[in-house]
Structure formats: C-alpha cells, structure tokens
Nucleic acid binder design. Structure first.
Lengths: 76, 76
DNA sequence: TCATTTTTACTGGTTTAGCAGCAAAAATAG
DNA sequence: CTATTTTTGCTGCTAAACCAGTAAAAATGA
C-alpha cells in the first residue's frame, strides 16, 4: 500500500458516494485541500486527516503481519 | 483502527524484532522522535513516516470496504 | 447553446511535524 | 552493585501541512 493507491481508492469511493471534494471535506471536518492532496497521492498528509476522510468513505484500515494474532491475544 | 492502536501494534512488533527505537528509526530512515510519536499514538504523524516504520516492521496496511472489489476490477 | 457544478491550481498566513542534540530516568546485562 | 542500553522528555530550528480564499479550466446538465 502506498499513498498513490490510497488516493485512487479514496477518489473512487468519493465518486461512488456522489460527493464533491468540498462536501467530503466538510463531512470529514478537514479542508478541501486535504481531500485534494490525499486523492493526488500526497505522502505527507497527516494520519488523522487521512483517517477522517477514510471514515467518511466507510473505508476500514487494517494492519496485517504474522504477529497480529499474537498481539491480539496478549492485548486482552 | 486509530492512532493509539497503531502505536501499540508498532511497539509490539518492534519489541519482537528486538530493535531499539533508534535502530528502528535508522532502518526506517526517520528520526527517533517519529518512532516515539507513533508508538504514543500521535495522530498527526505523516503518512509517509508511518508507512516507513510499518515497512521496517513488516506490517502490511490494507484498506477494506464493500466497494474494494469493484475498484480492483476497474483498476486493470 | 448557456448555466451550474466540480476540479485544478495557486495564494498568504498559521500551526506544527520532524529533526538532532542533550540529559535524566528506567530497564537490562554483567 | 555497576556499567550499558534504552526510554522518556525536553530544546530550538526548519520545512511544510493545513486552511480559507480566489480564479480559471473542465465537466455536467438543462
């Protein structure tokens, strides 16, 4: 996964949801510039900005590794 | 997924890999402050910084939604 | 065609992320 | 206990993320 792919995914989902950038930005509580930057694969966007946008698009983010199961076991 | 959980996951994996923060930071090509911030759930870390650290830890990041399959179909 | 909306692309200003360096506390090793 | 390593937490500095505003190009629709 990289920022370019993330951008494409965000744009695709925004189009499906029928939202303009400004509408998306307003819902996410970020500026329209941030949505523009994310969709253009800007790699330096801040995590919270990205997460807000992903949340509006109903996109879940998941981390995977061979040790995730062990992590979840020890978590509880 | 949120920044606090990401931080815990990163720390867990770093411990498993037997790396100190500084070693992890050096491998990832970021400063030790960035690793510290990520592990402490700082939500304003930049995406590229986070991705570099995740890469060193061999943690994959994945986006999920009901439309991801459609996205991948139209991608090719 | 013409009007509206959306997207792209810049602006200046404010805030802050990331950095290295330092030092003290905490953990680890011998 | 002692020495070493690691972690925490601060510093000032530089670069840049984010924002709202503006405007023009592109797309959409009536």
């Amino acid at each position: 996964m990289n920022s370019n792919r993330i951008g494409k995914i965000v744009r695709f989902h925004r189009k499906i949801s029928g939202l303009s950038r400004e509408a998306c930005a307003r819902l996410a509580g970020v500026g329209k510039t941030a949505v523009y930057d994310v969709e253009h694969g800007k790699s330096t966007v801040q995590l919270d900005t990205l997460l807000k946008i992903l949340a509006v698009m109903n996109i879940q983010i998941e981390l995977q590794s061979p040790f995730m199961k062990q992590f979840e076991d020890e978590e509880s």
